[in-house]
Design a protein around this nucleic acid. Sequence first.
DNA 1: GTCCAGGGCCGTT
DNA 2: AACGGCCATGGA
Length: 235
Amino acid sequence: MNDNKCIELYNLLSKKYKDLNWWPVDPKYHEKNKTDSRFEIIIGAILTQNTAWSNVEKALENLKEKNKLGIKSIIQSETEELREMIRPSGFFNQKADRLKTISIHIAEEYNQDLDNFFNKDLRELRTELLSLNGIGPETADSILLYAGEKPVFVVDAYTKRLCQRLPINVKIEYNAIQKHFEEELSKKYSGQELIQTYNQFHASIVILAKDFCRKKPVCKGCPLFEKCSYHYKLF
DNA sequence: GTCCAGGGCCGTT
DNA sequence: AACGGCCATGGA
């Protein structure tokens, strides 16, 4: 009963936030141009590191405008030009290097073929992503879940904050939280449904954190108000 | 003007 | 293992 807090959390959140359909790309575009769309998600995952999505959108627009949003284009682009195109997303010097690093990796090891890339064994692929400079756990897992459609629960700063405030009885550390959520959720869901659950869950946590569970929390009206003990501590 | 955003790396303790 | 400094832009 008590170990089921994440299922309860998921049910509450998905009732409030329905069919979010993340990652934010046009679903029709995703279906029609799967390869391009997947690559765009990979690039977006890197560009959004500690950065507001609205800024990432500007960077992606710049890349699309100049027809540079592709593996080959990024590898061949001049570093200085790449930096300018992604400037709005912030940290643009390191991010330009990171975009090149992963593009070169996919080109050299997988002949630029994302199907080939994502067909690799999940654990091996995750380790491989983490070995690349600039790809940490959240970026790797976002790529695996949203671009690769793999059953991976993404943990971010919002998820940690939420676990801390509710609280959910886990050590506030990336791997511990991920393990806990994956164990609980995979008891109930499997296959495509599990993937969809991870997708929807992470997306709804992000929205919740923007609407209510901000750094400076807005507890009034929060869908988790009854379940959360944090607001009792407020003033 | 201040704060903060869907992190990650590197050096220090 | 945990923590601090650093990287940078744009919107609230």
